[in-house]
Design a protein around this nucleic acid. Structure first.
Lengths: 344, 344
DNA sequence: TTGTAGGCGTTATCAA
DNA sequence: TTGATAACGCCTACAA
């Protein structure tokens, strides 16, 4: 007898290769599409029995909801766009990692935008990523152009800026005063008796603000800024190593140097170790960021602790609270602390 | 005269607060919606004149296409999901960064999935992220469960696994043999005359494969594996520092140690420097990853160079070629090289 | 508690 | 070269 198409159509039959849709599940469970939707999104609003029936069908068919379609219909994408200059720097990477994990817990996915250190590109990135209809935006150390700002405002979605600064640029902020950090470091070093100072720093915008605070305070307290090395980000250990000699030359009587990154400071320490320069006797060093490398060096690095991961987490909390309509503070100042170790 | 609604309706007027849609642009430019779509996607298929008219309207209205709607209609999301265990590790971060940049160039956005080192979670992540309808998937050092594999196959999208290994798990692979690396390191150390060996390693799956290769080769060449310290990822410098003492105890006559990460090796070097242990005379050290810290240490670290950024880039090329329908090799082996510096 | 009708904003398809 | 029409797969709003 020749094989013949079944006369009672199998409710689970589909043209092979076609992906499983919500209507397939509905048919298999003997309910309507909307009931399947509810089973997945608001399960409490269904009878235990139907819920079970639907979920079992979901399972059997291996149904994976098309989130794009859902987003289009509900106007909620459950995606957050995160724009970061780079993730090759541990500080930003930690922040993004913590943020992504926390948002993921809350059912959001993160779209990654790598802005680099170029304004034009970052702006373009913001605009195209806005086309993804994100429910929110995370900006890490991003300087926004006027155009980008306008678009953000029009998008009408919560925007959290972390790693931020005193001057409010974004909707919501999680950060600290960079100038204040510079000031605190200068005070710390002056208090410990240093009078001559050096700077080794990347020239990115945040670092420059820290330097401003540092310089002003050093000056006010009668210190002398003898030398300053600026370089393009990202900071590297090698740049730090190369900086030791010029620093010692400019500070022949000793002094203290403020580095814009623990990486630079670690380079200084390595070079000092290699060439027998006593730290802090011949040169005191203060870093920034409290990276693992700083605590692990010998002598251990005095530095400024800023917890990138904590900022990421706080940003996520802000974001989810805001998305849930809960009232939240517009600005959160995270604690920043000078960790006195062995290099000052 | 009282203000009165204009009788010739402004083609650019919209209820305020409503976002600009393609039909708004169409109306403003005096064309149909599909023409606007074409102006943006296939500009060559339009008259110069209409193209100009449309683009000017796009500009004037600040139209940003809704990519979700476009994706739904075209069945191409122009999104790639990247699943990485962590970005707190420079090696993975570099790979992801290079990949994201390259894909961005090609007009794709990357959705970030942080898998951690937990299988169950990673699997769940793969499934929900598949709901985003990505056009492709990047797996970085991901071990796929059977269930996840099935879903991936059903999704029918290109999957590139980087940081991969000899055993093909994914559709496409960009990687190298981890066991081969262990073997090469063992050979290198034996060739240089070392006979007693130690291991300091994280216990993640890739590292373990490298260790297997290392052990087998050491044994074959008559060496002796005297000590082995395994720890949970991620590797830290501090763990390295703490490992020196036990290592020296187990290797009183000297020997060589293979670390699963340059971070661990750097810790060993720092501790050695602090306690006056001569490297490599009292202990030779070989790292893995060729991170900046290794080259920047004094003495400079012998290590295995694996270029994470290059893998990311190659993966992106694979992905775009495949998406464009170009034929590509199923496996790309990236060169892995032992960089002999001062610690062996 | 469940279902029906309609629309989310875009692009594929076919026609002019 | 341009346009009309009909999906894409799901969810909101309302009704039963």
């Amino acid at each position: 007898m020749p094989p013949k198409a079944s006369t009672t159509p199998d409710p689970e039959a589909r043209p092979p290769g076609r992906t499983v849709r919500i209507t397939d599940v509905a048919a298999a469970a003997g309910v309507s599409a909307i009931t399947v939707s509810r089973a997945l999104n608001t399960p409490d609003r269904l009878t235990k029995a139907t819920l079970r029936r639907v979920l079992s069908a979901v399972d059997r068919l291996g149904y994976v909801p098309n989130l794009m379609a859902g987003a289009l219909a509900s106007r909620r994408s459950r995606m957050i766009v995160a724009i970061v200059p780079t993730i090759a720097t541990p500080m930003y990477a930690d922040a993004l990692q913590a943020f992504t994990n926390a948002m993921s817990q809350a059912g959001y996915h993160v779209v990654l935008g790598l802005g680099g250190f170029d304004r034009r590109e970052e702006e373009q990135l913001i605009i195209t990523l806005l086309g993804r209809q994100p429910d929110g935006l995370l900006l890490v150390g991003s300087a926004q152009s006027a155009e980008a700002k306008k678009r953000l405002a029009e998008a009408g979605i919560p925007t959290v800026e972390i790693w931020g600064d005193a001057s409010p640029r974004a909707d919501l902020q999680v950060g600290f005063s960079h100038a204040g950090v510079g000031e605190a470091v200068a005070n710390h070093l002056c208090d410990r008796g240093y009078r001559s100072f050096g700077i080794v720093s990347s020239d990115d915008i945040r670092a420059m603000e820290r330097l401003d605070g540092f310089r002003r305070t050093v000056e006010r307290r009668g210190g002398r800024l003898a030398v300053q090395r600026l370089m393009a980000p990202p900071s590297t250990i090698m740049e730090g190593r190369r900086s030791l000699a010029p620093l010692l030359r400019a500070l022949p009587e000793g002094g203290a140097v403020f580095c814009s990154s623990d990486l630079l400071a670690a380079g200084l320490l390595i070079e000092a170790g290699a060439s027998g320069v006593a730290i802090p006797a011949e040169l005191a060093i203060c870093g920034f960021g409290d990276l693992e490398i700083g605590q692990a060096m010998k002598p251990a690095l005095t530095t400024v602790s800023v917890d990138g991961a904590e900022m990421g987490q706080l940003a996520a909390r802000c974001m989810t609270d805001r998305l849930a309509g809960n009232p939240i503070p517009r600005r959160i100042i995270v604690p920043v602390e000078i960790i006195q170790r062995e290099t000052t």
